[in-house]
Simulated assay, not measured.
Amino acid sequence: MDWLQQLINGISLGSIYALIALGYTMVYGIIKLINFAHGDVFMVGAFIGFYAITGWGLGFLPALIISMAFCAGFGVLIERIAYKRLRNATRIAALITAIGMSLLIEYLMIYIRGAQPEAYPADVLPNKAINLFGAQINSQSLFILLTSIILMIILQFIVHRTKMGKAMRAVSLDMDAARLMGINVDKTISFTFAIGSALAGAAGVVFGVYYTKIEPLMGVIPGLKAFVAAVLGGIGSIPGAMVGGIILGSVESIVSAAGFSLWRDAAAFIILILILIFRPSGIFGKNTKEKV
């Protein structure tokens, strides 16, 4: 039953990618911007959770909530400082700004606290082996998967059942028409950054609990993989980001189980190349013609 164990591990890892990918896809869906600083918001969330647990003695859930709240505010601040003035700028200007913001956050964190890694305490969540259909499943994996699923359900509720969610969908469809209908577009975009960044903060805490080690440059590879997950699912599609993350995590887990653990990072980018060649719009994306 090793395959079941690897599948659960892969889905748990994929759910972390999905939480990060949701921020990419939501922001792109509204203002057509790939926010490459998003992986570093994930890193900041991991450190906020770490200091909440080790410095304040809090449990997993309070640390998760504090990290999400801090990252929500941090995401809005990034949008106001770096992106708001570039709404009508060229795509390349926004892209360069996003990369610059990513590097600024990384090296500002190194300047503030140094480059040394930290380790989450091993007893944040109970770590027991659960026998499921003959496979030994780590209880942490199941708890992380459950946490991610709950957060995704809450996101779906916000997007489809709340007034702000309706405004987000309207701005995504047509920003100018939404503005004419009385929707506060700036407030809606800030809310989108807040929600996406809060999910990235949650992913940072979950990642820290799962992998223990965190460091200031930890957001680069998971951030890129989450971007691959968003493209795989169809950039701009919320269900696509979820499915893309889970597929990517499962593939990585299978590659590692097959004895090719050195290739697990490469697998994500091989998937990206294949998707861009054979289905550029992704699994849930739609083919649209666009002037650049």
Results as ranks from 00 to 15, higher is better:
6 Q>Y: 11
7 L>V: 00
10 G>I: 00
14 G>I: 05
17 Y>H: 13
17 Y>S: 09
18 A>P: 15
21 A>I: 08
22 L>W: 10
22 L>G: 04
28 Y>I: 09
31 I>D: 01
32 K>Q: 05
40 D>Y: 08
40 D>H: 09
41 V>Y: 12
42 F>Q: 00
43 M>S: 05
43 M>Y: 05
44 V>E: 07
45 G>Q: 00
50 F>V: 07
51 Y>H: 11
52 A>E: 04
54 T>S: 13
56 W>L: 15
59 G>P: 12
63 A>E: 08
69 A>P: 04
70 F>S: 07
73 G>M: 09
74 F>L: 15
77 L>P: 06
79 E>N: 08
82 A>L: 10
86 L>N: 07
86 L>P: 11
88 N>E: 10
88 N>G: 09
90 T>Y: 09
94 A>W: 02
95 L>W: 11
96 I>M: 10
100 G>T: 00
101 M>Y: 06
103 L>R: 13
104 L>I: 10
104 L>H: 03
108 L>I: 13
108 L>R: 14
109 M>W: 11
111 Y>D: 14
112 I>Q: 14
113 R>C: 14
114 G>H: 06
122 A>D: 11
124 V>C: 13
125 L>C: 15
131 N>G: 05
133 F>C: 13
137 I>A: 05
138 N>I: 01
139 S>P: 15
140 Q>T: 09
141 S>N: 15
141 S>Y: 15
143 F>L: 15
147 T>H: 02
151 L>A: 06
152 M>C: 07
153 I>T: 05
161 R>Q: 06
162 T>S: 08
163 K>T: 12
167 A>Q: 02
167 A>T: 00
168 M>H: 04
169 R>F: 01
171 V>M: 10
172 S>G: 14
172 S>P: 13
176 D>G: 11
180 L>N: 04
181 M>F: 02
182 G>Q: 02
183 I>W: 03
187 K>G: 14
188 T>Q: 05
190 S>W: 09
190 S>D: 13
191 F>W: 05
194 A>M: 08
196 G>T: 09
196 G>Y: 06
197 S>M: 01
197 S>Y: 03
202 A>E: 13
203 A>H: 06
205 V>S: 00
209 V>F: 01
216 P>M: 08
219 G>V: 02
219 G>Q: 09
220 V>M: 14
220 V>Y: 10
222 P>N: 01
224 L>V: 05
225 K>Y: 01
226 A>I: 12
227 F>E: 12
230 A>R: 07
237 S>C: 06
237 S>K: 10
237 S>I: 09
241 A>Y: 00
243 V>A: 15
244 G>H: 04
251 V>A: 08
252 E>R: 00
253 S>W: 01
255 V>A: 05
256 S>N: 13
258 A>K: 11
261 S>W: 01
263 W>K: 10
263 W>F: 12
264 R>H: 03
277 I>E: 04
278 F>A: 08
278 F>C: 10
281 S>I: 04
282 G>H: 06
284 F>K: 08
286 K>F: 00
286 K>C: 04
287 N>F: 03
290 E>Q: 03
291 K>Y: 05
292 V>A: 11
